[in-house]
Structure formats: C-alpha cells, structure tokens
Design a protein around this nucleic acid. Structure first.
Length: 887
RNA sequence: GGGCGGCUAGCUCAGCUGGUCAGAGCACCUGGUUUACACCCAGGGGGUCGGGGGUUCGAACCCCUCGCCGCCCA
C-alpha cells in the first residue's frame, strides 16, 4: 500500500540515481532510432541555478523525455561556459575580499591558475542543481567551452576565418570598459537613461572677432576636440567655415569645418568634434582628415595628451574641472538639465568610453547572409514566430563583431607577432614558428597576442564543437543539425545569431531546426528578479518546499506566455496538490484491486463507463502529444491537469465506485483492468513534466497484476492511441449521467436539501434512449447524487422539484425540505437564464441576413438551441405556476 | 524616433483559423468526517473582454485610432 503522500525529499535523489545508473540518459544505440538532439544553453561554469535556468532546462527536459519515450535516440547534451568576463570578475572580487594581490600584481599565469582552482571548486554546483531538477542530460557527454576539444575547435575556426579574410585586425573606435579595461562588443553595451546636462560652451574665434557656442553632455572630451563642425547650409555660420577657434584651456587652434553631421535644428547648430572619443565624431574626422587625439588611458583617466593639471585625473573629476574652468573663464553659457541615454557595460555597470584601439573583428555582415537565408527559407524556424522579425532586423544591419578582449580568462587568440609586427595566425605555436621561418628565412622570436576571445565566440560553436567537430565523429554525423534549441530571447543576438552564422559557415548545415524562445521569469508582481531588489526566488528552495515536479509543472504550464512569467508560490502549491491528487487516485485504485490484466485491449472493453474513459484517455493522449510536438507546453499541462483531475478523478473514479463495490464480477473485473490501464497511460503522459512522482508510482504499481514489458517509466513507450477508441455513444451516455448528477447536486445545494437526505431521483420525461441510460446507470447515479433510487414517473408529483437536463425532465421529491422562497428564486433564476438565451438566439434567427449568410450548420445549431431553451423554459414555468398554485 | 509584447472575474492567466467564448486556477462565500485525497469533496457569487471608431448577418478574436504598462533597437 502506498504511503499517504509522496515524499519528494527521499524519492527524488533515489530515482535520479536509478535513472542515471540505468544509462537511460544516453541516447539509445539502436541505429534505427530517429535522432533527436538538444544542446543545453551552457550556464556559466561557476554559476548557480536561478529560476530562469529552471524554466529553460525544464522545457528541454520535457522535450527530451517526451522524444525518448517516443523511441527516438534522444540526446540532451549538457555543458558549461567559461564565461570570460563574468568569471574573471568573480575571481577578482574574491581575491580582493581575501586581501590577496590583484590580478595584475599576480601575473597572468598565476591568476589563470586561480580561476581554474575556482572552477574546480565550484564548477560542479550548477550541474548538480540541474540534476536536482530532474534534468535527464547525458552527463557522459558533458563539455566545457575551455576543454581541450572545444579549444581546438575555437583555434580552427579562428584560423580558418582569418585565412578567409573573415577575421581581421583593425584600429577603430571600440566600446571600452574602463573597469575591466577591455573592449566589449556592441551588444554588451546597455543604454541607460540618466540625469545629465548639456553644457553650452563658448569657443572664442581665433581672431577674437566673436565666439561659437557648442553643447556637450561630456565636457571633458573637449580636451580632445580637433574641430568645430557647422552645416554648410546654415547661414549663421557659412562665413566662418575655414576659419578657426581657439580651444579654451588647451589653448589650441582648431578649424571650423563644414559637415552635414551638424544639424542646424539642434542647439546652436555647431558641434564640437572629438574624433577619438565619439562614434559620430570619428566619422566626421575621417571625412575631414582631422587628427585624432586620445586623451584617456585604459582606466579612462586623462593621459599625457591633456594639459598638465588634468593628467591622471579621472574622467568625471576632469568633467567638473572643465566646467569650473569654463565658468571662471566666463565661457560657460548655459547648463541645460536633461535625461539622456548613456552607454554602460552590461557586466561592469560603468560608463563605456569610445576608445581607439587595435582589435580583432569578425566580418559578421558576410557570415550573416546565409544565416538570414536559412530562416527565410524555414530551414530553421524561430518560435514564437514574431522573433524572426527581430532576428532579421538585427542580422540585416549587423556590424563587425569585435571578438578580442583584454582579459586573461578565455581562449587566447592564436596570433603571433614577429619583431617587425608581422602577424602569423596559426592553430599552434609550432605552426606559427614554421610560418615565421618561412617568411623571414630564419627563426625569429614570436610573441603571442595577449588577448582572449569573446566568450560568445566559443559558445557560437557549441552545437557542433560539443559533438566533436572538427573531427568527423559519429555523434556529429548522427546528431547535427540538432533538433530544437530552447533559450531565452535575451540572448538571441549574443548566441542564437552567432551559432547560426558560424554553424552554417563551418558545417554547411543549420545548427538547429527549431529555436524555441522561452519567457522570462519575473516575481509575482511582474518585476524582474534581482539580488538588489531581494525578490529572487531560489529554484532549489522551491524544490525543497514543493518538490521538483511541482516547480516543473508550474514553469511548464506558464511558459505559454509571450514574454514574462509571473511566478507565485501559490501556483506551485496548487500543482504540488495536483501531484498529491494523482498519488491518492493511485492509492484508491490499489485499494480496489485495480490491476493490469494480461492482454488487456482498450478497444474491447464492454462497459459504457469504461468505453467512455478509454475514449477520453485517447483524446488526452492525442492532445498532449500534439501539444508537445509543437512546443505548446501550456496546452500540454492544462490538458493533463484537466484530464487527470476533472475527468479521471472527479468522474471516472467516482462513477466507477459502484462497479468496484458491486456484485457484477465481470463488470468489476473490467473496471479494475481499465482503471489500471488508464493509470499507466496517465503516468506516461505526465512523465515528461513530472518525472519523479510518475516514476515512483510506476515503480510502486509494478507488482499489480500483469507485469509490464518495460522496466522504468523513463524509457517506457509513449502511448499512441487511435481515435477509433473514442465511442460517441459512450460519450453521450456518460455525458447525460454527468449532466444529471451535476444539475441534481446544484438543485440540492440551492434548496438546502441536507446532504444526509436521500430522496429518489424521478425521471419524468425522457426519450427512450435517455430512459435506457437512466436505467442502466441507476446505481451510479444513486451513489454520486446521493439519492435512494432512480424511478420513472409519468408526472411531477406534488412537492417534487423539477429540473431539465438535455431536454429530459427530472425531479427530486424533497417536499419536506422545501423552502418555498428558495425554490421560487431558483426557478425564476433558471427561467431568466433561458429567457435571455432565447432572446439572444431569437434576435439572430430573426435577422434575415443572418439566416441568409451564416453557414448552414451555424443556423441549424441556433435553431436547436432555441428549441431546447424554449422547451426547458416552458417546463420550468409550469413548475413555477404549480408552485404558486400550491403555495 | 523605430520595432515587439501586454491591457479579459479581486489576483495570475486560457481563449488556436470571427458564430455555446465569456473560461481555468487561486482568492472569496455556503455546505460537507459519502473509509483515495482537508495538499480534499460539492455548490455559488463575480467580468458591458483598456477607450473610441470601422469591416461583418455576427467581433474578446479582423482593420484604424487613442490611452496606459513593459521590453528591445536607435
């Protein structure tokens, strides 16, 4: 006998260990099995599981378990990302907290060793957390972006792209993060609205004949100004073009130039030009051959190109000083408060500076073209579809991708420099040396590029590098292209786009056939979860409190939402209860001898109730299957919930009780077998979403009746049930029983008939078919409606309360309990409902245009509905008038 | 400024190709020890589907427009 409740705390670790030990997580070796593969979005190796991971990985696990049960060679390939900036940041912080030397004092080698130490220490955390969630990843294939194989893939890709001239070195403005002292890519820059000001500065004309006013939100950049631009069409300034102003503080003459970038409508119409520290100004500088003066050092302190008294000052201190000096000089014309967007590093949170450096770039424009085409042609489908627009928009306007980072944790760029600065890009140092020897005619000392690659460079190779590329492995042949990628839309550019570009370029095939973008999880109020807000929900705490299944079901059920999921513990609790409900339903069947029958064939069951539940089971299986095939996760869970709780527990089990306790041994036996069969199907259908409780129940019911062909549920075959199992006659019959019982209960409740009272149920008017139904189901109705018997009468007896179900008139003789007022109210309410329905339908049918234009079946449907309502209303009105007469 | 998503019962959300589509869960109210389950059972109240306009015989669903809320890109 089952315990009273499922205990996730003890069962989950036990079951997970059993699955893992059984080898079920690895794809079947059956060569005939169709492959189904998913690569995990690799979490940061030193990270820990947050609720977003929980959602993302639950969905992947649902798909993987589903396809595994469907007999496919299902591979969910796990792994972690070295997460360059993020990990380096964590380790640096730890060093600082421990009072250690800084990374620069420590040196590269020692620091990187420290990071590996930290990886060894904390690297297993998140994968163990995934196990707790129930993730059925094939851990034997686990990869890490910095492991040897993946590093080789990175070098190969870099070198190949370089030889194809799709990677090149260039000196241009980059987004410079002064905190990490590295370049970052465009998408790592976050625009944040901040309070700021336009400072209006007057630049005196060189000849002292006047001034020109320019405005800026970054006053300190004026120290690097090399021109003032005006629009050639702006009559206020045409006469000044070609002349010069004397740059205050710096005391340097700079030209007044004409350039369309100056917008006469904006501010004074004149703009200061700082080509080395502004992306727009850089273009202006290029067009006009202006000198570039870099005024910052890597930490964004003023360098030797600034006036003496500014050198070494932080940029924000310099800003204050510049403003103060302008004021002192009498050249500060205005300070205009404003809110404006300022670029910030998404990791460091500090203000980004455009900064002139040498970096490595990927020609994304070229790589993007086939990636755009692949989605246009549907070789990769993005779900929900509307993300394709976002994808196209970004891909069609893509900029060169800056892939070098001035960090130490990551893949070191495979480029070596000769003494004369010549670059040798090769997969190994030996190859670079050989190339150098070839070039110079003798050995020369080479120096490897200090920089590492953007983390997303290696994750961009993930779908094929993890399968063994560049080697032609069996896994690569079998599992690439992968089937579905499940990820958050927040990394569509960072990751999905890059995988598309690199995957197609290097393998010729798309990396995945389908991308499913899951929603973002927010707190119950809809706010983004963040540590600073203190509204973070720890998935592991939720697993502790409610079990992994409840959390999984909740996340799956809510993942239909377009953008956000507002997660509340109430919801999780509700689904925990759902699990308990199933647990107890199983307990019930166990207590009632429901055991699998040898050779049970659902198509052969005789009893109408059993035929009905077999049909409902087939419907449920079809719904869930179709939903999961199409990533309709909410549809799948809602279907399961309704079928299991409302259909199976509330009706089938209740209606089956008389049969299970009855004297008809044949009917009892069939019902026991059917109940057991349905339960097995339920466990299978629910398993992908709630793997633990279903596996446990599967296990606990293993000894009941005929043995199952298969061992664990995780690898049991998915139910495929044909529509032929649906019996319309059984549907109609049980439908009438359910409607009668529901309506009867409603009448009892409204009239305050005591629950202990057991009147008879009178069938007064019914078609012969309906009478047959009431006859054969009398026992069932008696028990569920709590009536003494079902009896046929020719007329409604004095004091009996009538109600109408499917056109049949039923009545409950409960004169002794009748509250006249309550009954009158009840009848009046029912009549009113019908009356409004009749009015509604009449209005439609009375409209000749409706009858003329609407589809025939719609018109017919309305006619039937009208007739039904009118009949019911008439009967109830008769009852009401009798009541009035009697009263 | 451009794009996207949302605005349906007190709360969180379903409502797929216009015609029982006005729903579910939670919350609330009433009743219940029917030996699977109080993490339960039965019953009930509650919404002019953000505003306005249009298309249509018919619109929560299609079109236009306005208003909020959120996200992304400039």
């Amino acid at each position: 006998m089952l315990e009273k409740n499922f205990d996730p705390k003890t069962a989950e670790p036990r079951l997970y260990a059993a699955w893992e030990a059984s080898g079920a997580f690895a794809p079947t070796s059956d060569p005939a099995a169709e492959p189904f593969s998913i690569v995990i979005p690799p979490p940061n190796v030193t990270g820990s599981l947050h609720i977003g991971h929980a959602l993302n990985n639950t969905l992947q696990d649902v798909l993987t378990r589903f396809e595994r049960m469907r007999g496919k060679a299902a591979l969910w390939l796990p792994g972690t990302d070295h997460a360059g900036i993020a990990t380096q940041m964590v380790v640096e912080r730890q060093l600082a907290e421990a009072g250690n030397r800084s990374r620069r004092d420590m040196g590269r080698e020692e620091f990187v060793a420290k990071v590996w130490e930290w990886k060894a220490e904390s690297g297993g955390t998140i994968t163990n957390q995934l196990r707790r969630l129930g993730a059925s990843c094939d851990w034997s294939r686990e990869r890490f972006t910095l492991d040897e194989g993946l590093s080789a893939a990175v070098r190969k890709v870099f070198v190949t792209l370089h030889k194809q001239k799709l990677i090149y070195r260039d000196k241009r403005l980059v987004n410079w993060d002064p905190h990490f002292q590295t370049a970052i890519s465009d998408i790592e820059v976050e625009q944040r609205e901040v309070e700021g000001a336009y400072y209006h500065f007057a630049y005196p004309l060189e000849d002292g004949s006047g001034e020109i006013v320019v405005a800026t939100t970054r006053p300190e950049t004026m120290l690097g100004d090399t021109a003032v631009a005006v629009n050639a069409k702006d009559p206020r300034y045409t006469h000044l073009i070609g002349r010069a102003v004397r740059l205050p503080i710096v005391n340097r003459p700079i030209p007044i130039i004409a350039d369309d970038y100056a917008d006469p409508e904006k501010g004074s119409g004149a703009v200061k030009i700082t080509p080395a520290h502004d992306f727009n100004d850089y273009q202006v500088g290029k067009r006009n051959n202006l000198p570039l003066i870099n005024i910052f050092d890597p930490q964004a302190r003023l360098n030797e190109n600034a006036p003496k008294e500014y050198q070494g000052l932080d940029r924000f201190a310099a800003r204050k000083k510049v403003v103060a000096e302008f004021e002192a000089l009498g050249l500060l014309r205005e300070i205009e408060k404003t809110r404006h967007a300022v670029p910030h590093g998404d990791r460091s949170g500090v203000v980004i500076e455009p900064y002139l450096t040498d970096q490595w770039y990927v020609d994304a424009k070229t790589l993007a073209q086939p990636a755009i085409k692949a989605v246009e042609e549907g070789r990769t489908v993005l779900e929900p579809k509307n993300w394709e627009k976002t994808y196209f928009e970004w891909m069609r306007n893509i900029e060169p991708w800056c892939v070098s980072r001035q960090l130490w944790w990551g893949h070191r760029i495979p480029a070596w420099y000769g003494p004369d600065g010549r670059i040798f890009v090769e997969e190994t140092e030996e190859a670079a040396k050989a190339a150098a020897r070839e070039h110079y005619g003798h050995d020369e000392p080479l120096r490897q590029d200090e920089d590492v690659l953007d983390t997303w460079f290696s994750s961009g190779l993930w779908p094929f590098s993890t399968l063994g590329w560049p080697d032609k492995t069996a896994d690569l042949a079998r599992f690439y292209p992968t089937h579905t990628l499940v990820t958050g839309f927040d990394i569509i550019f960072y990751w999905v786009a890059r995988m598309m570009m690199l995957g197609i370029h290097f393998t010729g095939g798309v990396p995945f056939k389908r991308v499913f973008f899951n929603a973002l999880v927010r707190d119950a109020k809809g706010a983004k979860m963040s540590k600073s807000k203190g509204n973070v929900m720890d998935p592991l705490e939720l697993v502790d409190s409610y079990g992994a299944d409840a959390l999984r079901f909740t996340l799956t059920a809510m993942s239909g939402q377009a953008r956000d999921i507002k997660l509340s513990t109430q919801r999780i609790e509700g689904y925990r209860n759902f699990g308990t409900k199933l647990w107890n339903a199983t307990r019930f069947t166990q207590m009632n001898g429901c055991a699998r029958a040898e050779g049970f064939d659902p198509a052969q069951v005789k009893g109408v109730l059993n035929r009905w539940i077999v049909g409902e089971t087939a419907r449920a299986a079809q719904t869930v299957t179709a939903a999961l095939e199409g990533c309709g996760f909410d549809e799948a869970t809602n279907g399961l919930y309704r079928f299991i709780w409302n259909t199976y527990c509330d009706w089938y089990v209740e209606l089956a009780k008389p049969l299970l306790n009855g004297a008809d041994e044949a009917a009892k036996g069939e019902t026991q077998a059917t109940a057991a069969w349905v339960l097995d199907v339920i466990l299978k259908l629910l398993h992908p979403v709630m793997p633990y409780i279903t596996e446990e129940l599967w296990n606990q019911t293993a000894d009941l009746g005929a043995p199952r062909a298969q061992g664990m549920l995780i690898t049991a075959p998915w139910p495929v049930l044909p529509s032929s199992l649906i019996d319309p006659a059984a549907d109609a019959e049980i439908g009438l029983v359910i409607a009668s019982v529901s309506e009867g209960r409603s009448v009892r409740a409204e009239l305050n008939v005591p629950p202990s009272a057991k009147p008879a149920l009178l069938v007064v008017e019914a078609t012969p078919a309906q009478r047959q139904v009431f006859e054969t189901n009398a026992a069932v109705i008696a028990q569920t409606l709590r009536v003494s018997e079902v009896r046929f009468e020719d007329a409604i007896p004095e004091g009996a309360i009538p109600f109408v179900v499917d056109g049949a008139t039923l009545a409950l003789p409960v004169a002794q309990f009748i509250d006249l007022a309550a009954e009158r109210a009840r009848l009046a309410k029912e009549i009113a409902t019908h009356a409004s329905d009749i009015a509604h339908v009449n209005k439609k049918l009375g409209n000749p245009a409706f009858v003329a234009n609407a589809k025939e079946e719609v018109v017919e449907e309305n006619r039937e509905r009208l007739a039904e309502s009118e009949a019911a209303k008439a009967k109830l009105e008769g009852a009401l008038s009798r009541l009035e007469a009697a009263g």
